[in-house]
Nucleic acid binder design. Structure first.
Length: 215
DNA sequence: TGCCTGATTGCCT
DNA sequence: GGCAATCAGGCAA
């Protein structure tokens, strides 16, 4: 398994080196496909967040697909409103929104421009910057750091200011890197916490991983 | 302008 | 298992 250093008071250069150690950004073509086609490839990839405090990263172990204008559970359902316009833009960008008045939730935009497809990141398995994540979360156990959409943004330091970040350049604070190892079996289920289109099996997760969210 | 709902979390009983 | 915290987006008036 690949490891990454995480110096406490990282200079930008050190932070960049640490982020690079986790792998270069996945290319646009990874995201620019039909949303459900991306799902099996997304589980096990690594999300890296670089802030002045340092670098934090985790394996993505749970996601939910939101298909766009035709999906009643998606923020994109009502068309490209000011909030949803990022989802209608170019694939490979981050859509970060404010949930329940207190949490940031992060999506990655997929599919062709104008479709509105995206994946909500629901859980990560922490792999770098654990002490930083522990401080941000006020929790110690790795499985408590990223086992939920609001938890993982808090742990990684993802904020609303990162909405719209291009994940493919490596220039911004966020990117996704290729898997460091093959994922375990991927299972599907209905999506969690929604009231519309409850029956669609668009939640994907790594079976047996303790960092998957509960409910 | 005002009301209601929500892709959540964590604490309390 | 119940519920409060807390606020922006979307829609009705």
């Amino acid at each position: 398994m690949r490891t990454a250093s995480n110096p406490g008071a990282a200079t930008p250069a050190v932070a960049a080196a640490a982020a690079a150690d986790l792998g270069p950004p996945l290319p646009r073509a990874f995201y620019d496909r039909p949303t459900l086609d991306v799902a099996p490839d997304l589980i096990g990839t690594i999300i890296v967040c670089r802030t002045p405090e340092g670098v934090a990263a985790g394996r993505i172990v749970e996601v939910e697909a939101y298909l766009g204008r035709e999906d009643p559970a998606s923020h994109a359902y009502r068309g490209p409103t000011p909030r949803a316009k990022i989802m209608y833009g170019e694939a490979g960008h981050a859509y970060v929104y404010f949930s329940y008045g207190m949490h940031a939730c992060m999506n990655v935009v997929t599919d062709r421009e104008g479709v509105g497809g995206a994946f909500l990141l629901r859980a990560i398995e922490p792999i770098a910057g654990l002490d930083l994540m522990r401080r941000r979360r006020g929790r110690d156990a790795p499985k408590d750091l990223g086992s939920g959409p609001g938890k993982l943004t808090a742990a990684l330091g993802i904020t609303l200011a990162m909405n719209g970040t291009d994940l493919t350049t490596g220039a911004g604070p966020l990117h996704l890197a290729a898997r460091d190892r093959p994922p375990g079996p991927i299972e599907r289920s209905v999506r969690i916490g929604i009231s519309r289109a409850r029956d669609l099996p668009y939640r994907f997760f790594e079976a047996g991983n303790p960092c998957v969210s509960r409910r």
